[in-house]
Simulated assay, not measured.
Amino acid sequence: MAQIEASRKFCLAIEEMMTISEALIATATEYIVAHTDSTSSFDWGVRSSAWRNLGTGFPHQKYANDLAQQNIELKWHLAKHWASAALDEKIRIATWIVSDWGGIRRNSEMTILGYVNQADAERPATPFAGISSYSKILAIKDPDRYAVFDSRVAASINAIQLLDVSRRRLKPSDALAFAIPAGRNSAVTDFRDDDGAPASLARRGFALVETDSIYGVYSRLLNDIKCRVGGLSLLQIEMVLFARAPAPCEDARRATSENSTLLKESEAARDPAS
C-alpha cells in the first residue's frame, strides 16, 4: 500500500510540471496494453565476460531462458546494491550498466562521475546530451521512478503516434515529436532519418518537444500510462516500447508512404490536366 501511495504521489508531482494531451496518453496506453506480451520477445543478451565483470552476485544464469525477467531482476538487484554502495562502487556499477550492459563505450570517467552525482541528486539534471547513458544509470538507481530513454524507445513513441495520425485516430495537434538518439537498429535508424525525424513530424503538425525537456516529458508520459494501467511498472512499459520498436517504425513508414500515394492519386484525379 505504501508503495502504491508513493507511486501515486510521484504521478501527481510530475503532473504538476506539464500537460500532455489526453488523446496522446490514450494512444500510448492502448498500444502498451495491446502489446504487453511483447516483453517475452525482449532480446538483450549480455556477454559472459560482462557478467563476470559485474561482480555483485547477480544470478544471471537463473534467467538465461527469460531475458525479459532477467532484465527486471537485474535492475532491482542493482537498485538494492546502489542503495548501500560507496561512491567508487557506484561509479563502477554505473560504468558497467552503460558500457558492458548498454554497449556505450564513449564516456570518460569524469562523465560517468557526473552522471552518478546527478543520479543521487534530489532532482537530477536531464539534458538531451548523454540521455541514452545517464538514463540507464537512473534506471538502476530507482527503477520505480526512472526508465531508460534510447533510440528504440524514442522511435517507438514517435512511430506509435504517427500510425494513429495516419489512421485519423489522433490529431497531429495532440501529438509530440521526440528527438531520437543515435542507435544501432537499422529499422529504427531509417525511421529516425526520415518520417520519424522531429522536423518531418513538425511539418505534419506535431509539437516539438524541447530537446532538454525530453526526459522529463518522457517520464511524465510513462507515469501517465502507469497511473492508468494497473499492474505494469515503468520498466515493463519501457520494455514494451524497446522490444516492439522496429515493427511500429516499419509500419509507420509504410502507412505514410501509402497515404502520400493516395493523396497524389486523389490530386491527379481532381486535375486531369496534370
Rank of each mutant, 00 (worst) to 15 (best):
P172N: 04
W82L: 13
L232H: 01
V33R: 14
L162W: 01
M17K: 14
D190F: 04
I32H: 12
S49K: 15
V33T: 14
R220L: 11
E22C: 04
V229N: 01
L234Q: 06
A26H: 12
R184K: 11
S257P: 00
N107W: 00
F206G: 04
L263F: 05
F191H: 06
A255V: 09
L208M: 14
A207W: 01
E22I: 01
Q118I: 02
A159W: 04
T39F: 03
R204G: 08
A6D: 15
V116A: 03
L201I: 03
S233G: 08
V153C: 02
D271F: 13
I131C: 12
A125N: 11
D193T: 07
N117H: 06
I131S: 08
V240C: 08
A182G: 10
L54W: 11
I157R: 01
I237H: 07
E30G: 15
E238W: 02
F178S: 01
D174M: 07
V209R: 00
S257T: 14
E238A: 08
D224Q: 08
G45D: 10
N71M: 07
R47E: 13
A207V: 07
A83N: 12
G45K: 13
W96I: 09
R152M: 04
M110N: 11
P246V: 03
A268G: 02
A177Y: 01
D212E: 09
L12K: 08
D174F: 07
P272E: 02
A252W: 04
S133W: 01
S173E: 15
A245N: 02
T111F: 01
E267Q: 12
S166P: 07
L78T: 09
A207L: 09
